[in-house]
Amino acid sequence: MPTDLILTPNMDRPDDIYADLLAAHEGLSKAESDALNARLILILMNQIGERRVLAQALAAARVPEGS
């Protein structure tokens, strides 16, 4: 089935991006980290924009091993 959600490598510098994510959380309490994650998810959802693609992302997140 065709999908618009990209589940193949798509980050230009994966190690750097991952390190950026961890660095953003450094020194934060659990509550602050949860809030940051929530803001980040909302910002990225807006970037994607399409409900159809986000539904695919939610499904992929819910079942990480794939269907």
Partner: peptide, 9 residues
């Protein structure tokens, strides 16, 4: 948490 994130943003 999500509700407050929406309001903050």
């Amino acid at each position: 948490i999500f509700r407050n994130a929406v309001l903050d943003l």
